[in-house]
Amino acid sequence: MNITPDQIIYWSYGSFRINNTLVTTWAIMMLLTGISWLITRNIHPDKPVSGRQGVLEMIFITLNEQISEAGLQNPARYLPFLGTLFLFIVCANVATVFPGYRAPTGSLSTTAALAFCVFLAVPFYNIYDMGFKAYLKTYFSPNPLMAPFNIIGEFTRTLSLSFRLFGNIMSGEIIISILLSLAPFFFPVIMSLFGLLTGVIQAYIFTILATVYIAAASKNN
């Protein structure tokens, strides 16, 4: 059994390898984009709100509230990044109920990429808000001696983000696979249900931690 879906390669050309992680990611991207387009193509303030639009608006408002509660004052500005993180991870994790599906979040490459995005987003938003110099000063806060630790902290939290998500999803998939071979009729179903719960919680944790990292850097200023 492959630990990571990266090892399932459909096509390769030199270093370019189209593996299962990329394919499922593209599928999730198309799914999310397609559903969004279908629901929002006829959306208009004067039209009555449909049930699907209501669900979208509920998700939209909930994400905004969560971002706001985490400490970011203008949630609409961060929603494209943080909301996409949440929706992508949730979809990737919840889809594990389909047989033969390997979640891209069970790939360390994906979680590392997402953590890297967060790693970039923190200085991006804060430099945009407070300027480059002011952001640099945050690394020397509360005193210059803390600068190495702050820099190390940036990297370690990125690593922790990626490994936490990767570990949880990957371990869940492996446990289900093992249980399928040992007791194929009962425990895999329970574990799949647990996997759904774990997947949603991990998506929430990942998104909230990213929000907190951005908000913390802003507050340090």
């Binding site: 990266d6 390898r17 992680t21 990329l22 991207m29 993180l85 891209p104 490459s109 990429a113 995005c117």
Partner: peptide
Amino acid sequence: DWFTVAAQVVNF
């Protein structure tokens, strides 16, 4: 897989 990492960043 660093290519996958880069691709996933772009994808994201």
